[in-house]
Design a protein around this nucleic acid. Structure first.
Lengths: 155, 155
DNA sequence: GGCGGTTGCTTGACTCTTCAACAAACGTAC
DNA sequence: GTACGTTTGTTGAAGAGTCAAGCAACCGCC
């Protein structure tokens, strides 16, 4: 192993800022959602993605990918959402291994009523005070990071 | 409550990208650290911050703030690090309520040997392919977000 | 000097995530 | 058709984080 390529000062500062965002922002949004809608940020994503899917239905495999989680995590989460009556499982008609998650009417009502408050929280915590260029920069840099992770997974 | 200020398309895209980073990046770095050094990303921060502090010592209250965590979380983590012999607690000489965390020699050796691999993982996952301007943008935008959170805490 | 509010920290219960092991169905090659 | 490796999904145990409650020390004030 050769001499490690240490981070420059600028990189260190950027890294500290990003790390702080990753520690604090999810916490912040979880708290708002938990308080106002009884769910966490990840559960919100799952319901939101389902609500936009054709027939409000998605195979678990795909839902896990779109929501950036492991299948195991999604499986546990779907079980919880099922218990609350917001989602139900259906066997896939085309592949006997696969299951689909379907958003119920209750789930639809829940996400529709939770959305305004959550969007407001995201706006307050993230986008307030950002210029259009800031938003573009954020999208671009995060896109690079995701590409880096995809290109070089640790798992 | 008035009509919610929905996100623009650009904001939505940026938000999805940031959310994906927040879900996947910590996971990625945790896996590398767990595999190569037997600790998680947050534990690494704690050790790293301590290693740079005067006398490798910091009051728990301050360490919690610098590491962007709750005191409760830090308390649990320090207990784990204590069990592994990387950190020890000391009563504060100036305030009988307070405790200091001190990095042990073992802890020092651990963080020194873990650092190169972890820096490499951060570089691979985050900074590879970023221009200097990207790095500046990342720092600037994350700084804005942190300011937003500070100005408007949900807790 | 002691009362009341605040600060620093710990604890335990609850919830959530990960990881590894497992099972069932698929598909390809022979 | 059957054997092998892969894909899809579930499960249970172990590890971590959050939250609320609690305790002790501090500080300002009367």
């Amino acid at each position: 192993m050769s001499e490690p390529r240490w981070l420059t000062d600028d990189e260190q500062q950027a890294w500290r800022a990003l790390a702080a965002v990753m520690l604090r922002l999810p916490n912040e949004l979880d708290r708002q959602l938990k308080r106002d809608a009884g769910m966490g940020e990840y559960e919100y994503w799952v319901l939101a993605i389902l609500s936009e899917a054709p027939d409000r239905t998605l195979q678990l495999r795909d839902l896990a990918e779109y929501s950036n989680a492991s299948q195991s995590r999604l499986s546990h989460v779907i079980s919880r959402l099922e218990k609350r009556g917001w989602v139900r499982r259906e066997p896939s008609p085309t592949d006997a291994r696969a299951s689909n998650a379907v958003l119920t009417d209750d789930g639809w009502d829940t996400i529709v009523s939770a959305a305004p408050g959550h969007v407001e929280a995201v706006r307050t915590a993230v986008f307030d005070g950002l210029t259009e260029r800031d938003v573009d920069d954020l999208k671009r840099v995060c896109g690079h990071i995701l590409a880096n992770i995809d290109a070089n997974p640790q798992g």
